[in-house]
Design a protein around this nucleic acid. Sequence first.
DNA 1: ATGTGATTTGTACTATCGTACAAAAGATCA
DNA 2: TGATCTTTTGTACGATAGTACAAATCACAT
Lengths: 236, 236
Amino acid sequence: MVRKPTSKETARKPNMREAILAAAEELFATNGFNAVSVRDIAQAAGANPGSVTYHFKTKDGLLLEIYRRHCGPMNLRRSELLAAAKRVRDLQDRLEAVVRAYVVPAFTSGSDLAGGGARFTRLRAVMSAEGNEVARKIIAQTFDDTSHAFIDAIHDSLPHIPRTDIVWRSHFLLGALYYSLVTPDRVSRLSRGETDGGDPANAIEQLVQATVAAFQAPALDQAAPARRRTVASSKT
Amino acid sequence: MVRKPTSKETARKPNMREAILAAAEELFATNGFNAVSVRDIAQAAGANPGSVTYHFKTKDGLLLEIYRRHCGPMNLRRSELLAAAKRVRDLQDRLEAVVRAYVVPAFTSGSDLAGGGARFTRLRAVMSAEGNEVARKIIAQTFDDTSHAFIDAIHDSLPHIPRTDIVWRSHFLLGALYYSLVTPDRVSRLSRGETDGGDPANAIEQLVQATVAAFQAPALDQAAPARRRTVASSKT
DNA sequence: ATGTGATTTGTACTATCGTACAAAAGATCA
DNA sequence: TGATCTTTTGTACGATAGTACAAATCACAT
């Protein structure tokens, strides 16, 4: 179909395998796993449905390979940034650096795949929402260590906050991060169109700033007693 | 259309229509829209597949009816709580009350359907992640007004924060809220099993506390200059 | 140029999907 | 009771799903 002008380079039109991976990543991330058929992927990649079976055996195998492709680089990058962040001496600055080390690789490229970071993170968000089993397994065994490392680092910057609260707030961070990537235009819509919903740098800044403040909130148990109010207590 | 239930009880085998709605709600919320077949729903409801077609015409129609069933009551409850929150005089207390008015109906029942609040909110989270068109439309025309009302109320409590930042942080709130309901056990897992990941009241408190702090963070543009740090500036 | 192993294509198979529709069953009231 | 609705059942149909597999094609060392 597409002719290679030269037989020298293997990756003239990128390996087809790569094209399939990229197409699948994009389609899965925007539509979910079950809504996308193997034929959809093949068509988007300019490939034959049989090619997908050849390279990845099954649809699950394709998803698994997408994860394998990204998890390593993204974790590596996070580790590097986390190590650098830990060296920041000022406690507040360090907290911000740690949060940034967590957020940045999720938005920007986690490997050499173009724009891969945001797309893969969005994919993770969607798979998580769908309760995809393949994704759940590989994520649990790949990211839980990283999550713990970050939680520990944050806890070091906020020794007076109980670990439980740190975990909750990290959880909220991940949710906010996911949602930002799942609905990339919702912010501009609600902002009455005057803003930069699509600018990832701005999204990162907003997320980091808000998250740092959330982490710094007083601990739940020891919150100032005067602060307890129950405006919405009826249970229905 | 509405036949008097008459003969002694309201429904000896509960309306079947309700059973189908409940089963669909549960299955969609945990597995996504496309992963669940009409036959799955019928079986879970103890009904015949044809019954689903009879009551809701199409699968989309079934989803639409689920939304119709919940959106009204939940918005009503939010409005009530928001109105009450707005009457709180102290600015910080009011902010917390407003956030609570937004969060509580999403966790607890928004109508008389048992446990409907959390389940429906989880459903919304999943549909949002999957980019479901039916859900997107009805949500945009049902919740955007509410969202604006909340954003306005929060802005009133934080006049010095630009509206853009408020919108972002509301966005993060919704993401955190969604994610808490999508992965109900992740917190306990990361907390090394000693905590209450399944307790909704605790989740609400954690979310409200963290979110209030996030809203109160300094505005992005006017953040203290000394605070700007770029520990993660390299781009890939 | 040719043989060889790696890919790509085309097609086919079975399972399951959403939906339609006629017949059966149940309920309501003259 | 019999007539007339509403609801449930059973079954079927066309479309599409994931996957398998043989044939065709390609890349390249010889």
